[in-house]
Amino acid sequence: MRIVVLLKAVPVVGNEKLVDGWRVDRSAGLEANGNDEYVLEAGLKLVEQHGGELVTLTMGPTPAMEAIRKALAMGAARAVHVQDPVLAGSDTLATGLVLAAALRKMEYDLVLAGADTSDGQGGIVGAAVATRLGLPYLSYAAHIEPDPSAETIRVRRISAAGYDVIEAPMPAFVAGTQLLGEPRYPSLRGIMQARSKEIATWTLADVGVEASSVGSSAALTEVDSATPPPPRAGATIVREAPEIAAERIVEFLASRRLV
């Protein structure tokens, strides 16, 4: 099975450095998006079971390299890194365009993406990319099971009531969640091997997207203002014996009309 994993490099949640008031500094300290590591792990297991090759696809600035290297150390065979200065400030629309264009130049039976990103928080890029490519879209995956002989893929999709078992012919696009399982740590051997693995760098021209449709100048969303949220007053601290502490909680609830 040939698998492509869409891997975004994101700032570490809680450690974002801000520039110009609200822009996040992406010049250093990026790591793989949490959900993308879960689908990467699921993809690696699929290749171990069914053979084939796993390639990661990332659109992002140079420091995304660290996340890509880790993916290679975990077991990805090679990586594609779409990188172009004009991509800075791209919105979800442009991201979907570029990732779809890059995928048109790749070969795959299965594309995997995360359910959402910790920085973008949209959870829409996967559905947009699948739709642009005309791929069956199977989302919120808690479990992925291919039937390579039938060339179909089965996914356990989280639903409001539990889950649905959904199925589609391959090639297909699956967006996955944490329930796919904990990502592995790269082994020392994996880290050594990663050094000789190929990272192909593609420019915007390489993927065939017009510069006028990407970047901050093309973005269809604009930030008007950014302010810290109103601070919380600071906690009232209670350090009494359980009986009194419980009474304090009930009084506190009552004072805020919560009971």
Binding site: G96, G123, I124, G126, A127, I158
Partner: peptide, 24 residues
């Protein structure tokens, strides 16, 4: 809506209409 189905709908619509999206 930012439900599971809603986000899927929004992503598909973004690609079908080529519209921008304010998320979350």
């Amino acid at each position: 809506g930012a439900s599971n189905d809603g986000r899927d709908v929004a992503g598909m619509l973004q690609a079908l209409l080529d519209w921008g999206a304010l998320v979350n």
